[in-house]
Nucleic acid binder design. Structure first.
Lengths: 328, 328
DNA sequence: TTGTACGCGTTATCAA
DNA sequence: TTGATAACGCGTACAA
């Protein structure tokens, strides 16, 4: 690999001049510029990013922290962050944290050692103190971890109410909810939305609420138990699509017909919902936009240093599919 | 951030000594060592990775190239590579190539500029010439792109035969195949396996072969057409699970009952198969192991410089689920 | 056993 | 308009 010195020698100028040509700053004579460009061409020279990073203290690298990329909600988010990073000439690092604070800190430290320029994080566990220590641009996504950090989320509360309203509107009379884990703030918000829709209904009953871990298996089990104990339930709002899939599977196992006997709605709009039989009605989050927006915010913050803390809230949208249908 | 010089000053030694303590090489007096360690502790010193990289020409960074992380086959692979990278103290970079050779080269160049140490790639399009140019450890996964690169794959051909044999063994008399895209070598191998199982059956007919793009939608359409034209088909081997899901959906749309009327088997063993109704019988690939093995090979190659080209072939395994059942 | 001094490849400052 | 040179932070000959 050719270095800037090789180029300088070949073009018979100093490295400073070459640098000026490369970075288009400072004056440089048209003729010398030509010679330099030619030498660069000839030697196939490309500046070494590591040396640049060392000098500048910046690496043109951003990282995304997700609990587990294996969870189908995250790949699309990751894709968005990577695309934006790429467009703006940043390298994209992916970190699976398993929601483990120890891993989070380890990654944070390791990446700061590499002069990572910014972070997009999905986390419920990063503490305010940690946030203070980090003085690198950072934006939270999907879940807000505190007031001292910028964020991009959706309106979980009103989205949740819309979901329940949809079930009501198609004639469901007894609506249950499989909620996500209690330590996750979007699960809490969705639960609250559900409650505010049904709490004052005379049929409401706290047995209509079950808790899952935002995954298929726990939801399936919870749904089997719930539907067995409360056979009168004719609508289920699952806290996310993965759990919606679990509910569908539970219903099939119990011989409950969806949507005739039972309507089901999920939340997220991940593509798995379209592959299920019946396909899953859901509240669609603009996952890609969320990731793109977040990445954009971090990079803009890196480059322009806008330290203001901003919170974006994007809309969710009802997507009616086969798992819910108006009752006769 | 403290530098090695700060530590040296505080411990009243030279930077060389500090370096020796950090990297445990060269002699250093027990007492001086204590002083140094103490200073390091006190200043919270951590060596700067960028400076290290510049000096060594190595970055402790490996990258994974996948066509699109949004395809559910890849997250688990990515997870494996990241886990291994992490364990062995490497940073993990994810690149979506969209199977675009231009993007691939761009990433390759960009990462070499950052002194990336190795690559795990899923690609059908990297040319032999490109491979020659890269003199950084690299291993191909899932698809082999040439003879001049190490690889980790599964036995697609025999796995495919096993899949068809399974359908035969449960009594299917007319077996169709939805094959993957022709330019992907694993699709070709799976097709060949299918052919070698059915070609000499008297019922065999080339209309029993359709081509999809390894995704849900194309497979669904192909299956609808195929099942309509050839209603006698009672078994379908889909080239991958995503297409298996498409077949299931097509069957439901046509009122064909699975597994009573029609048995379906997929390939890959991605987790979506368990969420479908009915759940999808499939040939399970050890996806995580593949990724882990590949990552391990690259890193070992980086550290020990074993330039021998090796090809690992891992086994696939039949997983019987609800979509296939013995005919009465 | 320890320290000096240089190089890794850039960029930016200052002087010419 | 250009060049010499000092950083950036680290590791390693080589000398002591």
């Amino acid at each position: 690999m050719a270095t800037i010195r090789d180029v300088a020698k070949l073009a018979d100028v100093s490295t400073a001049t070459v640098s000026r040509v490369i970075n288009r700053n400072g004056y440089v004579n048209a003729e010398t510029k030509r010679r330099v460009t030619e030498a660069i061409e000839q030697l196939n020279y490309v500046p070494n990013d590591v040396a640049r990073s060392l000098f500048k203290g910046r690496s043109k690298m951003i990282a995304l922290f997700v609990p587990d990329i294996t969870n189908p909600f995250f790949p699309e988010l990751a894709r968005a962050v990577e695309d934006v990073a790429n467009q703006r000439d940043y390298t994209f690092v992916l970190c699976n944290t398993d929601n483990d604070p120890v891993k989070e800190s380890a990654y944070l430290n390791a990446l700061q050692q590499k002069s990572a320029d910014g972070f997009v994080i999905v986390s419920s566990s990063i503490s305010e103190e940690q946030l203070e220590e980090i003085n690198v641009p950072m934006v939270a996504v999907d879940r807000i971890t505190g007031r001292s950090i910028s964020s991009v989320t959706v309106n979980n509360y009103s989205g949740s109410r819309q979901a329940v309203q949809h079930l009501k509107s198609i004639g469901c009379k007894r609506i249950a909810h499989i909620s996500g884990p209690e330590h996750t703030d979007n699960a809490v918000l969705r639960l609250r939305g559900y409650l505010d829709e049904v709490m004052y209904e005379d049929w409401f009953n706290s047995n209509y609420i079950a808790v899952g871990e935002y995954n298929f298996d726990t939801a399936r089990e919870a749904a089997i138990e719930l539907l067995r104990d409360c056979p009168e339930v004719d609508g289920v709002f699952a806290g996310n699509d993965l759990m919606g899939a679990g509910v569908l599977n539970a219903a099939a196992a119990l011989g409950r017909r969806v949507p005739d006997d039972l309507s089901v709605i999920g939340f997220d709009g991940i593509s798995i919902g379209k592959t299920l039989t019946p396909t899953l009605t859901t509240m669609v989050q603009p996952i890609y936009e969320i990731g793109a927006k977040a990445a954009d915010m971090v990079i803009t913050q890196i480059e322009n240093g806008a330290p203001a803390i901003t919170s974006e809230e994007l809309p969710v949208q009802l997507m009616e599919r086969q798992s819910s249908r108006r009752k006769e």
